[in-house]
Design a binder for these strands. Structure first.
Lengths: 154, 154
DNA sequence: TCATATTAGTTGCATATGTAACCATAATTG
DNA sequence: CAATTATGGTTACATATGCAACTAATATGA
């Protein structure tokens, strides 16, 4: 029995997702560290959209990353402490805080891109495109299956 | 474009796993809470093997759940604080601590089984067995792809 | 317009994890 | 057999998350 088969046989889906998730975040951080970059996968998940949108409210970041507003607050705290982003109060709606990249943040974004690509390749090694497609489809279904009632569009 | 398609289109694999993982742990805890049971998914992941093995060392628990020994220490701390398990020093090798269920732990184990099943059904809703198989296969491959060099059998 | 509700974001408390340093107890070997 | 190494487990520090309660600001509507 191969190691994969053994794992598949013994472990529940929940345990497998749990382990795969931890392994991926761990590897990303390790790869970044090897290149002298100090950033976590979750921090990157927020940094990317900020770059793409030029300026994003924390609410928008939460919607894009599917993260709780509480998590966004604290991730932005960390990014701000690292001088990668700054919060700017929206001029019209004073409840909103727009997050924008500093020059250091922009620099880091480009530095991390190849790390991301390297990690992606390590993760996908020997897995067919077809299986990856099915994999992503199932993940999307799970996310939709488990959506909070209260968050569902009425 | 359906919500699934939209998710699949926009989100990277890492983000999808991240979100699915969080959604599953969240739903499990919510389902348990609705039934008046106070246990997290990770606590359950440890409790199950203890039941199966009757008595397990923390090292064994780590191997089974693919969790770090540090995580096991702390999960067992919590389970012990909740009076669900007790640590017993191994009579032969005094470094080893065997973890066994209390009566309350055994009771909880059986109470949680239907919660587990309910959550499992909610997660898998409208996903074919075939796709689940592929899904688990891919997860196992990812875990193997990302295994630490130092942990690999020589 | 004034009271109420909603929205965006923050904070405190609890759980979960990784890393590294640490302790105590075996096991190894010079 | 004594010194060294390896093993099982714990602890401190940092990151990440959920929930609930909170603040400040905007929107709603009687």
């Amino acid at each position: 029995m191969t190691k994969e088969a053994s794992l598949k046989f013994h472990m529940s889906m929940g345990m497998l997702i749990n382990s795969a998730h931890r392994a991926m975040t761990k590897r990303f951080v390790q790869n970044a560290m090897k290149s002298g970059l100090d950033i976590s996968l979750d921090q990157w998940m927020v940094l990317g959209p900020i770059w793409q949108l030029e300026s994003a409210s924390q609410k928008e970041l939460g919607e894009i990353t599917l993260k709780d507003k509480t998590s966004i607050t604290r991730l932005v705290d960390i990014l701000e402490k690292k001088n990668l982003v700054v919060r700017v109060e929206d001029q019209i709606d004073h409840r909103i805080k727009r997050v924008i990249l500093t020059n250091a943040g922009k620099q880091l974004f480009f530095d991390v891109l190849p790390i991301m690509e390297k990690t992606r390749e390590e993760v996908r090694k020997d897995i067919s495109d077809q299986d990856i497609e099915t994999f992503k489809k199932v993940l999307s279904s799970i996310i939709v299956n488990l959506e909070d009632e209260k968050d569902k569009p009425s």
